[in-house]
């Protein structure tokens, strides 16, 4: 039980992801699908960032370090004092990817709307079938 409670954060993010995934598959409106996509990607970002957490540690910016004298002897830095920087770096990348994907998705949705005058998938398919 103790072990399971320690991972509730991951479960919250997985639930969020699945809400996004459900919206992407089941929603009829193309923009709602895009919203679902954003939820999915954001949940993954939260998931990764939570990997970086470390009990009793602070943000990964070294204190009193101002670039002058970068010798090892100036003062010791201990890994336990700072949280893991790597997931933050990765997620900065993933955020940018999510933004670019969102932009492209909206551009495509605009093109689809200009063509069919609707964003409801079933109406678009009906229009295609009519021809």
């Amino acid at each position: 039980m103790q072990m399971l409670v320690a991972k509730y954060n991951y479960w919250i993010y997985i639930t969020l992801m699945m809400i996004g995934l459900y919206a992407m598959i089941a929603k009829n409106n193309l923009v709602k699908k895009i919203v679902g996509m954003s939820i999915f990607q954001t949940a993954i970002i939260l998931f990764y960032v939570s990997i970086g957490a470390k009990r009793g540690a602070t943000i990964p910016i070294i204190e009193h370090g101002h670039g002058e004298g970068h010798g090892a002897g100036t003062h010791m830095v201990h890994a336990v004092d700072y949280i893991n920087p790597l997931p933050h770096v990765l997620m900065l990348t993933a955020i940018v990817v999510a933004v670019a994907t969102l932009g492209v998705a909206l551009a495509l949705a605009i093109r689809v709307y200009n063509r069919y005058n609707t964003l409801e998938e079933d109406e678009i398919l009906a229009q295609i079938r009519e021809k």
Partner: peptide, 10 residues
């Protein structure tokens, strides 16, 4: 700090 002299590790 030693290898790049940048305090912000990220």
């Amino acid at each position: 700090m030693e290898e790049t002299s940048v305090p912000n590790i990220v």
